[in-house]
Computed example of a mutant assay.
Amino acid sequence: MQTFYRRLLELMPRLGLRVTDLGPGTAVVSRRGGRVRTSLGPGADLLTRDDGRYAVSAAGKDAWVVVRDGTRAPAGAWNSVRLGDSGARLLLDDRAEADERKLQLAAAEYLCAQHVAAMLGLYGVNCVFDVGANTGQYAKRLRRLGYTGRIVSFEPTADAYARLSKAAEHDQDWHVHHLGLGREDTVSTIHTGWNTMNSLLPPSDYGRDRYQRFAETSTEEIEIRRLDGVMEKALDGIAEPRPFLKMDTQGYDLEVFAGAGERAGDFLGLQSEVAMLRLYEGSPRMSEAVATYEESGFEITGMYPVTRQAATGRVVEFDCVMTRAKAAPQTG
């Protein structure tokens, strides 16, 4: 004898509803489009739209990857890697495992961002100076990672500043300035047309060999201010400022830092792009930059490769994160 449950399921299509029977006493009713039930393993099922666009592959114990057809990662190409005792796992497809350098750099970028966010929290940072902001990538990443304090961004080039301004327009605690920072208040020219690599310095011979973008350039006149001359306004309204300095100025970071003068001591931490292989004429090597920061009381908390030579594996530049260890909150 047909049960009431079964009769009810048969009635649903007449009402314009679709029914996917999942087993005794269980069904999914949907208003539009069919559904497909795919078994993932004992006690686990996947329900997807009946359009043939999804593929499922195992990714370790009790884990599966669902991808749309047409992606470059075919079903079955995933490998789940345990990240020590962190509780995290890394999912790799065959493309990632085939390109070690790209994987390492992507992982370094992720880890650097996570580390900086953790340091901002640990040291109670409430104002980040984002020097060399470009179009706001760094600030937007901080927001995604949960930083809610003030961000003060400096970008000297007109095109990038216009995009930066637009990115920050709905964030009341993200202030932007159409300025470059340096050792002295002046007006100078910057090389443009190099995307995120615009610089006040000309490219080195090595830089020209590495990047085709350096073959052609245009210049733009920009205003440069000392960092210690803009800090008062930037920190206005913060009762107990705890600032952090991020610099990404394509070979010009030490000039920015020099412009902080004695107020460099106000910063609890910094992030600077330091070079093992110089892309710009006159830019400092990593050893010089790190020594300068250390003389001011900063200590390294993390080093993350930004670029590497494909042929040799050598690191070209690192993101160097440093803090004043004595400024860390004391816990009992």
Rank of each mutant, 00 (worst) to 15 (best):
T3V: 03
F4Y: 10
R7A: 12
R14Q: 14
V28E: 08
V36W: 03
S39L: 12
D50C: 03
S57G: 14
A59G: 06
D62Q: 13
A63G: 04
G70Y: 10
R72L: 11
A77I: 01
A77E: 11
N79R: 14
R82F: 06
G84A: 09
S86T: 15
S86H: 07
L91D: 05
R95Q: 11
R95P: 00
E97S: 08
D99E: 13
K102Y: 06
K102D: 14
L103G: 01
A106Y: 03
M119C: 06
L122I: 10
L122A: 14
G124P: 01
V131T: 00
A139K: 03
T148V: 12
R150F: 05
F154L: 13
T157E: 12
D159R: 10
L164V: 03
S165R: 13
K166I: 12
E169T: 09
Q172N: 10
W174S: 09
H177G: 04
H177W: 07
G180A: 12
G180D: 09
E184N: 09
T186D: 13
V187Q: 13
I190E: 05
I190D: 04
I190G: 04
T192M: 07
N195C: 06
L200E: 02
G207S: 07
G207K: 01
D209E: 14
D209P: 01
A215F: 02
S218W: 08
R225K: 15
R226Y: 02
L227I: 05
D228N: 11
K233Y: 06
I238E: 05
A239G: 10
A239I: 11
A239F: 07
P243L: 02
K246L: 05
M247C: 14
Q250E: 15
L254R: 13
A258C: 04
L268P: 01
E273F: 04
A275M: 08
R278K: 12
Y280V: 02
P284H: 02
R285Q: 14
V290I: 15
E294N: 04
E295Q: 14
G297H: 01
I300D: 00
T307G: 00
R308M: 15
A311N: 14
R314M: 11
D319P: 00
C320Y: 00
M322P: 04
T323N: 07
A328S: 12
G332W: 13
